[in-house]
């Protein structure tokens, strides 16, 4: 086994093209678990942790581009927190300080777990994933990038370089159910993004299907049930109906962390609450 540790992206892409079998090591929080357990025994490892240009981020008035190598801790300590509150909230629910110090947003994307904490946020934000290889760069929508449970569209000669999300223009929420108060894998999660500019609400579900799922019917319905000028729901019952619609669009499974029945129920509750937080009032609601 070989450990390759380039310091620049271009060197890394060279290595990647010559060693497509090399497993990419970023924060190690997934890969090392597999190596420690003997499940993964790579012949070569491409460590990208030392590539500073991947750990940077930049923002325009309308978009934030986050380097794949940014750790959750770096993200939490940056002003990305204000530009995307839901991404901040999701990052804060990842593991422990030790895990957040090591794990990266690129790693979360590359692993592509249905329970990956940032993925529903990225899905709700219509994020674009930046990929690079010696052949050039390409971008994929998050829904094109994650194609199945722990399966992505990343080509063997490619690296994830970053992800671009729009700057928030409205409330954002990330809610996650786990059996413990912290340090827990999502049994189910919901990201809800309100965009006042487009007068639209997007909602995506984590651990409620093979990939992060967008609840598009619920999104389309609720957009018309919001009085955008007053920032209120049209009726106090709308949040409940919205939750039911979101639950209906989930595709959860039974596993040792939870039942499909509970997951479906819980995403509905979470979606309802996320909407309630974003639109605390409703027309006709007694005060």
């Amino acid at each position: 086994m070989t450990v390759l540790a380039p310091r620049t992206l271009s060197d890394a892409l060279d290595v990647r093209s010559q060693h497509p079998d090399a497993i990419v090591l970023a924060g190690g929080t997934d890969l090392m678990v597999g190596i420690n357990a003997g499940r993964i025994r790579p012949q070569a490892v491409l460590s990208i942790a030392g590539i500073d240009e991947l750990a940077d981020w930049s923002a325009t008035d309308t978009a934030v581009t986050i380097g794949a190598g940014m750790t959750y801790t770096q993200l939490l300590h940056s002003t990305i927190a204000e530009l995307s509150p839901a991404l901040f909230q999701a990052s804060l629910t990842v593991g422990s300080p030790q895990i957040r110090n090591a794990g990266t947003i690129g790693g979360n994307l590359a692993t592509g777990s249905p329970a990956g904490d940032t993925l529903p946020v990225l899905a709700a934000l219509n994020a674009t994933v930046h990929l690079a290889s010696l052949a050039g760069e390409r971008t994929l929508g998050i829904n094109e990038f994650i194609v199945g449970p722990k399966r992505t569209a990343l080509a063997p000669d490619e690296l994830i370089t970053g992800v671009t999300i729009p700057v928030a223009n409205g409330p954002q929420e990330y809610l996650k159910v786990g059996v413990r108060n912290a340090m827990v894998i999502a049994m189910v999660s919901v990201a809800l993004i309100v965009d006042r500019s487009t007068r639209f609400v997007t909602v995506a579900l984590g651990a409620a299907g093979p990939v992060p799922i967008r609840a598009t019917e619920a999104e389309n319905w609720i957009a018309d049930r919001i009085d955008w000028d007053s920032g209120q729901l049209c009726s106090p019952d709308d949040a409940v109906r919205f939750g039911s619609m979101v639950a209906a669009e989930s595709r959860p499974i039974d596993d040792h962390r939870g039942t499909a029945e509970y997951r479906r129920h819980a995403v509905g509750v979470l979606a309802q609450r996320a909407l309630r937080r974003s639109f605390p009032g409703a027309i006709g609601m007694s005060t």
Partner: peptide, 13 residues
């Protein structure tokens, strides 16, 4: 953040 059920997951008001 651990004041309410759900803790860091922000599930609960």
């Amino acid at each position: 953040v651990y004041e309410l059920p759900g803790g860091a997951g922000r599930t609960t008001d």
